[in-house]
Simulated assay, not measured.
Amino acid sequence: MSYEATRSRVETYFDRTATDVWARLTSDAPVSGIRRTVRAGRDRMRAVMLSRLPQDLNGMRVLDAGCGAGQMSVALAERGARVMAVDISPALIEVARERLPAHLQGNVTFRAGDMLDPALGDFDHVVAMDSLIYYDAAEIGSALAALGARVRGRIVLTVPPRTTMLMAMWGAGRLFPRSDRSPVMVPQRTEALARAARRAGALGNLSEIERVNSGFYISTCLEYSS
């Protein structure tokens, strides 16, 4: 499946089906026990990703690729970054815009659309938290090649690892799709992603930083740098 086809499925899910779910998950509202583990895992992963960037981001332009409800964008702006917050879901962009603290209004620009759009310009760093988890290795490799050509510093991203549990969930999702279920995550191996990125023309190095395992949230932080 092409990047565009996968993006279309993800857009349909997040903008028509999951907006309320993700808005609640990324707030302080009470959630189920399962979703509490996901919330805790995402909080931990956000901290891991932020640890890979300079504490002082003043004057730096950072792309929050797949910003969702805007938690990462707020954290980046608090460090002084000029944030381009992009998400495929206009509905989630509105949630993120409403939640942005007033004192950070001048630091964040929101855009609904494709995170790979060349018109977004060049960046000092890119963060892509859980926004590439539905794409296959070739699609992620092409994304890294496209972004890598426009980034001076680091691309910090997450992917689902190829664990036994995630492979079982992946297989079940492929065999028994439901219209109300999210697009199926594609488990990845770092070595295979690195090869796919090289085949796509990416010149940098891809390395594994840390895996976060919190109940139903299992994700690996990767870093791409030239």
Rank of each mutant, 00 (worst) to 15 (best):
E4G: 00
R7M: 07
Y13C: 03
T17H: 13
A18D: 10
A23M: 09
L25W: 05
T26Q: 06
D28E: 12
A29G: 01
V38P: 00
A40F: 04
D43H: 14
A47L: 15
V48K: 02
L53E: 04
Q55L: 15
R61I: 00
D64Q: 11
G70T: 12
A75T: 05
E78Y: 02
R82L: 07
A96G: 13
E98L: 02
P101C: 12
L104V: 01
T109V: 10
G113S: 05
L116E: 02
G121F: 04
D122Q: 01
D122R: 03
D124W: 00
D136K: 01
S142D: 15
L144T: 12
A145S: 11
I155N: 08
T158K: 03
V159G: 12
T164D: 04
M167F: 09
M167D: 14
M167G: 08
A168S: 12
M169L: 13
P177Q: 06
R178G: 10
S179M: 09
D180W: 13
R181E: 14
P183A: 09
P183W: 08
P183V: 12
M185F: 15
V186H: 02
Q188Y: 05
T190M: 06
E191I: 09
A194V: 08
A194R: 08
A197N: 02
G204N: 04
I209L: 10
E210A: 07
R211I: 14
V212K: 02
V212M: 06
G215E: 04
S219C: 14
T220S: 13
T220A: 11
C221A: 15
Y224N: 10
S225N: 08
